[in-house]
Design a protein around this nucleic acid. Structure first.
Lengths: 139, 139
DNA sequence: CAGCATCCATGACGATACTG
DNA sequence: CAGTATCGTCATGGATGCTG
């Protein structure tokens, strides 16, 4: 069964408006969603959890350079958006395991493509930057 | 001919190190690249230019809510990275046309997938947020 | 181990005004 | 039209110290 891609939103007078999702529209919820998902730490976290569930410090080790503040902050956002679940195992000390949800898994392909592109093109991009900077310097 | 995906970087003693690109490494250039590309305005600009070249104010109209500051700033970054070109046609007033490069075009698939996912899943995500907020309120 | 609370600096970003 | 320049605000994000 194909789900209709519209969103019901209560209007000013209680009626429901049917909204076509459009990320180019200023107030479309997809805009906020894009802002969340198009984020360095979100991308790296989701990709990591895509290959295996992991504990907090595991993620911290894997994603080099992330502070625990950004890590816990981003994890909470992802949990709130339903892309990641947080499971607590009663132990001393406590064990917390983060797992990607099926919803989050649906995003994985796109994210991996982005990374693949970045890893494949970084040399060309670096060259382009060099060119650009040289041209600017000569002006 | 398959290009090797390594990057030559001058080391401390003048030798060249062969680096495997790894976005999880703190200092890999792909990390900066990811930060650029995983950006709301970059995504929207590239997608727009993916379907047609466009002038500054055309972009501004299409991408609702972008300020001219962020637009020109992001365009300059994208130009520097070699993902977009800027062509000036001598006229009065001047005409400036932005076009996506083949390099940038290679990223389009991934970005479109991201948007498709966002538009498809925004309802589920909104529901998840609701759930989460309710659970938080009851604690 | 898995965080939260706090402080603080830098930078992101929008609004506004101005230019060729 | 296609921007640049400047200002003020708010958020981002690292560093540090503390908790159960």
């Amino acid at each position: 069964m194909q789900q209709e891609r519209t969103l019901s939103i209560p209007g000013n007078f209680g009626e429901t408006r049917r909204l076509q999702p459009d990320v180019f529209a200023r107030d479309c919820p997809t805009r906020q969603l894009l802002d969340r998902v198009a984020d360095k730490w979100s991308v790296l976290i989701l990709l990591t959890l895509g290959s295996e569930s992991m504990r907090f410090n595991g993620l911290k080790r894997r994603i080099q350079g992330v502070s625990q503040k950004m890590l816990s902050q981003t994890l909470r956002s992802l949990e709130r958006d339903g892309l990641v679940t947080r499971r607590i195992e009663p132990a001393v000390p406590v064990i917390v395991i983060y797992t990607i949800t099926p919803l989050g898994r649906g995003l994985l392909g796109a994210l991996q493509s982005m990374i693949d592109w970045a890893e494949a093109c970084m040399i060309e991009v670096a060259a382009a930057q060099n060119d650009y900077d040289k041209r600017q310097a000569s002006v």
